[in-house]
Structure formats: structure tokens, C-alpha cells
Amino acid sequence: MNKAYKMLFLSTLVTSTMISISSYSWLGMWLGLEINLLSIIPLMHDQKNILSAESSIKYFITQAMASTIILMSIILMMNKTSMTANSTLQSSFMLMMNSSLLTKMGMAPFHFWFPEVMEGLNWMNCLLILTWQKIAPMVLLMYNMKFTMFMTIIIISAMVISGIMGVNQISLRKIMAYSSINHMGWMISSMMVMETIWFYYFMIYTLISINVVMILKTMKIFFLNQLFQSMNSKMMTKMFFILNFLSLSGIPPFLGFMPKWLTVQVLIQNNMIMLPTVMIVMTLITIFMYMRIVLSTILMNINEINWNPTLNLTKFSKFYLAMMNFFTITSLMLVTILFNLL
């Protein structure tokens, strides 16, 4: 029964996102977002995790508040008297809607609920929040991408907040949350100039996130001290994790570098020089966070840990980890060779 209802809510979660992004009206998009919210709350419930109820309530309150503001801004924009009013009023309603969509996806500076909710969830729910739950708000934001200055401020604040707050964390779930905020800044900047690059970025980010989360889930790791200890006995898994984490940071020669490279290129082609410059400089703080974890994982051996679970990897798990990690590590090199050949 447990699996049956999870499959039911998972199917409605997928359907609601499709309804939202394929709707012809703002009201249909809002309806899709509401179904999406009501679908993920039961999936968050976990009897083995006492913090899941708290996370569910926090998530529900934040999302419901954002949905209310979206609906209010839709009604105000559709109102005939406001339609005939000056364009400043219309712009303010659109800014309200954009801010609500940014709140829904957990983008800085509307991010305060995001790391807290992540902290109370298991890894599979974290993966849903990091990847699938970003699709609908981002696509709706793409339809409404008119305020370049507002979006620039949002992007730069995301870079600053994710870097500074991420360095200060010991929980891997919170580190992944701040990492997601940083990547969302890059995604929104690519969305401003070319939607195709946003799609590439999102797909590559999702692939790398799945790899990192699956390794952490398999080894039952939630905190940095567990990471340092658990990785010592499993050298191959340690290397897979380190290479994927470096790919997530977006440094060459890993696959995660490619969407950032494309984003910087299209921004410069559109004469936006300052934005990518600031983004690259601010992302260096986040890269420092990744590098510190990677170097500590390689060098440190900590005996004082919260718990050290026994690890039994199946043959399928080993094969999956090996294949997916090989793909993410070598893809950038293969894509570059293909581009040069073409």
C-alpha cells in the first residue's frame, strides 16, 4: 500500500508539472502549481524520519503563500481597469508574480525556507526538490522574462548568498541546497538570452545531482564527518564522488563546465559583459566550498562520527555508479571533440 500511494502521488506530481508548463492561460499554470504542491506533500512524509513532518509544513506554508500571491497578481493583471491603467502598475503586478515564482523555486533572496526544508528530508525527496520541482516555476518565469535589471539583481544575490552561506555548512543537504541556488542563478542568466542553453544546463545539472545524491544515499551520508570516514574504506566510490562533486562545481574538464561555458559565451555575445564577470568571480566562493570538501575527503581520517552504517553494494549499484560517473566525467571531452569534427 505504501508503494502504491507513492506511485500515485508521483504520477500526479509529473502530470501537474506538465499541466503547468503546457497551459495556455495563467490560471491553468496556477492550477498546475497547486496540484504539484498537493502531490509532493504526501511524498515528503516518512515514518522513519521525525523531521519530515516539520519540513512538509514549512514547504506547504511557503508554497501556498507564493501561490496566493501568483493568483492575486493574475487577477489584478486580468482586471480591465488595471489593464487600461499605466504600464508601471502592470509591471509591478508582473514583478509580484516573478517574485512568487522565485520563492517557489527557492531562489535567493527568497530562499530562507529552502535549506531548512531540505535538512528534514531523505535523499530521494531532496533530489525531487532540487530537480523536478524547479521545472514548473522556471518555465513560467521564462514566459515572463522582461525585467533585466530585476533579474540581474536576483542572479548576483544568488551568487553571493550561496557562496557565503554554503561555506559555513556541515550538512551535505544544506550544501546541496546552496549549490542549487548558485546553479539557479546561472540558469536564469542563460534563460535571459537563450532558452536552449537553459535546457542543456538543467539536464546536465539534473544528471550530476542524481549521481551525487545516489552515492550519498547508498552510503547513508548526511554530514561532512560521515563523508570523511565512510569514504576511507571505499576508494572507488570516493573517486566517483570527488569527480562528480568537481563536475557539480563547474570546473574544466568535467561535464558541469560545459553549460557555464555556453552561458558565458551567449551573455558576452549579447553585450552583457559585467554580469558574467561578476558571476564568475562570485562562483569562485562556491568552488572554494567544493574544493575544501574534496580535499578534506582525500586527506582526512576522522574517527569521531555520528554513526557508521554497514554498506552492502549490489552488483547493479556498482555497475550503475561506474557507468553514470564515467559518462559525467568524460562527456565534456567527447562533446568538444565532436564540435571540432563538425
Rank of each mutant, 00 (worst) to 15 (best):
I35T: 05
T152L: 12
M94W: 15
I21F: 07
F222E: 12
N2K: 11
L172A: 05
F147Q: 02
S56D: 00
L332R: 04
T277K: 08
I280L: 13
F60C: 00
W186P: 01
L27G: 03
V212E: 04
G250M: 01
S157K: 06
L31K: 04
V117I: 13
F319M: 12
N312M: 08
W132F: 13
T218S: 15
I70R: 03
T196W: 07
S16F: 05
F316A: 09
N79T: 06
T277F: 15
K146Q: 10
F327I: 15
S56M: 05
S317N: 11
T328W: 00
I156C: 06
N36T: 03
M236L: 14
I129V: 14
W26P: 01
F9S: 01
M165Q: 11
I268N: 06
F288V: 07
I170C: 12
F93E: 02
S16I: 02
A66D: 07
I69A: 01
L13M: 13
F327M: 13
S162M: 03
R292A: 14
F202D: 00
T336N: 08
L207W: 13
A177C: 09
V264P: 03
E119Y: 11
L334Y: 15
M333F: 14
C126K: 01
T336Q: 09
I197P: 10
I74H: 06
I19G: 02
I21G: 06
M96K: 03
V160Y: 04
K146S: 11
M291C: 11
M18W: 11
A136F: 03
I19L: 09
L227W: 07
I285C: 10
S189H: 05
L10A: 14
K80A: 08
M333W: 13
F223C: 06
L295N: 07
T15K: 01
S20C: 14
I170F: 14
S87G: 03
I75M: 15
K58Y: 00
L224H: 04
P252S: 04
L262V: 08
M272G: 01
M279S: 11
M124C: 02
L71H: 04
L172T: 02
I170S: 15
I251S: 00
F112K: 05
P276C: 08
N244Y: 08
L313A: 08
L248E: 02
A85I: 06
M272S: 12
K174D: 08
T68C: 13
S67P: 07
I164D: 03
M159F: 08
